[in-house]
Structure formats: C-alpha cells, structure tokens
C-alpha cells in the first residue's frame, strides 16, 4: 500500500519520463529523473503558493485565472507559448491514479460475554472489552497433592529406576540364562563367585543392624527432596499412614513362638 505522496510522486515520475520521451530521449539515469520529479513537484507547489499569495493580496479566498497568470509571469514562465505547447501533436496522457478502496473491516470475533458497568461507572463510558483481555486464568495444572497419587507416582518411579538399573547391569556385566539356549529376553545377572564363598560372611564390615529403622528414616528424606510442602504433614502422619496406606504391606508379625514346653508336655 503506497502512501498518497508516494503514489503522487510515482505519477509525477511517469509524467517526467513521458516528457523526456517526447523530447527525444531514449533513457535516463535515476538521479536525473528524480531531479526532474523534484522540480516538477516543487514548481507545482510554488505556482500554487504564489497564486494563493496573489489571490489573498487581492482579498479573495479562491484563486482566479488572473492570479495564476500573475504567478506564472512572476516565476518567469513564458505564458505565450502555452497554447502552442498544449496543441502539440504527440502528447501523452497519464491516466489518473485510481482511488484505493479501503479494505473491508472484518467482523470482530466476539469472545465471551461483556459484563455490564458497575453502578459507580456512568453509562456513557465505553463498555468493557472482551473478558479474555483482562481476566486472568491459570495456565498450569494444579500440582497433585493427594497422598495416594504421590505415593503411586513414587512407587512407579522407584520401580522404573530398579528396572533401568537391572537392565544396565545386564548390559555391562555377564548374564546367565534361565533356559538351556542362550536368550536375551530374560537375562539374569550372573553371580560372581568369590573364591572362598564363605569369606564374605566371615569378614567384619559396617553393618546396619536396624534395617527396618533405617528404611523408615530414609523414606521421609526422599520425600523431602520431592515435595517440601508435604514434609511436615508426612512426618506427622507417618504412623497413621503406615496403617491406611494401600501401598505398604501390613506389618507381618512373627509367628507366635511355639513353646517347647508345651510340646514336651504331653497333653
């Protein structure tokens, strides 16, 4: 889309080019043509300016023919040749620039329902914009805080980690096969025999005796990393959860000791 001035200058450059062709030129440099366009534009504006000045000097508002003639004479243009020039043979007529039709405004998509003014806003003020322009809606999902879901997620994660570790071990270490033929579907991590197999049992090492205790103290620590918000709650509920949590096995009590005395004594 050209601006009005640019479109007008385009027409003027066509006029200048046609004038050059009439004069007998075949081609022109851009600089020269631009100079001619500039001169053409400034001479039109100057004639208009000068004519207006003469017309206003005479106390009129609309310029007459005489004002224009006077302006032309004052500019030093030879008015006597104008008629001859107008009646020359090969005059080129540039078509008038077409007026551009403004593009049809597309219908604005109505989104939502515009609320009416509150009571303290006068009715003549503009209506509210579409609600989507100012209403704030959260764009992220609310994090899951349900205990069961979190536990399930953590269990899945733990299982995945174990599975991945197993797979990794089978990749880098030797594997045994469960079946006679070598298979890669169900690999089993090969057991590495140490020379005296009982040596491990004999060697003293740092041992965690209270395995159960250690496990229970580890679990809240892992949870601490995952979501800190729930930490307090979890510690408080630890006892309760161990009971009504479906993912924890119930505590298996050791079978009641069979009293040897009872066996011994014949009933």
């Amino acid at each position: 889309m050209l601006g009005p001035l640019k479109a007008q200058r385009k027409v003027l450059s066509a006029v200048a080019a046609s004038t050059l062709i009439e004069a007998g030129f075949d081609s022109s440099y851009d600089t020269a043509l631009e100079t001619l366009v500039e001169i053409l534009q400034s001479i039109i504006v100057e004639i208009g300016n000068s004519s207006r000045a003469y017309c206003e000097l005479a106390g009129r508002t609309e310029p007459l023919f005489a004002d224009v003639l006077l302006a032309l004479v004052n500019l030093g243009l030879h008015i006597s040749d104008l008629e001859r020039f107008a009646k020359r043979a090969n005059s080129i007529v540039i078509p008038a620039p077409t007026t551009s039709v403004p593009a049809k405004q597309l219908g604005i998509l109505q989104a939502g329902v515009k609320p009416s003014h509150p009571s303290h806003i006068p009715a003549h003020l503009p209506v509210f914009p579409d609600p989507h322009a100012y209403i704030r809606t959260p764009t992220h999902k609310q994090p899951v805080t349900e205990y069961e879901a979190i536990r399930e997620k953590s269990a899945i994660q733990k299982r995945d980690i174990e599975r991945a570790l197993n797979k990794f071990e089978t990749k880098i270490n030797d594997t045994d096969s469960l079946f006679l033929s070598p298979d890669t579907i169900f690999p089993v991590i090969a057991c590495k025999p140490t020379f005296p197999p009982y040596l491990v049992a004999l060697l003293p090492k740092d041992q965690v005796f209270e395995l159960e205790d250690d496990d229970s103290s580890k679990s809240p620590q892992r949870k601490k990393g995952k979501d800190c918000i729930k930490e307090e709650d979890d510690n408080a509920k630890a006892d309760v959860d161990s009971i009504d949590n479906p993912y924890l096995r119930p505590v298996k009590l050791p079978p009641p000791k069979i009293k040897i005395k009872d066996l011994m004594t014949p009933s």
């Binding site: 007008q8 006029v15 200048a16 004038t19 050059l20 009439e22 004069a23 030129f25 001619l36 001169i39 053409l40 534009q41 001479i43 039109i44 504006v45 100057e46 004639i47 208009g48 300016n49 004519s51 207006r52 609309e62 310029p63 007459l64 023919f65 224009v68 032309l72 243009l77 030879h78 008015i79 040749d81 104008l82 020039f85 107008a86």
Partner: peptide
C-alpha cells in the same frame, strides 16, 4: 499538490493551466 500549498480552486481549468505550465517548464528543460 496545490492543496498542500494552500491553493484550493473549484475551477478545473485553473488546475489544468497549472499542470500545463509545469509540464511546459519540464519540457523546456528536457
């Protein structure tokens, strides 16, 4: 362009005369 100079004429002959004069000038130069 005449309007931009403050020149507002309802007579098309005046405008045409100015066009002619401007083009005559350009033709002389050419």
């Amino acid at each position: 362009f005449l309007n931009s100079a403050g020149f507002a004429s309802t007579d098309p002959r005046v405008v045409r005369l100015i066009s002619l004069a401007a083009q005559k000038f350009l033709s002389d130069v050419a």
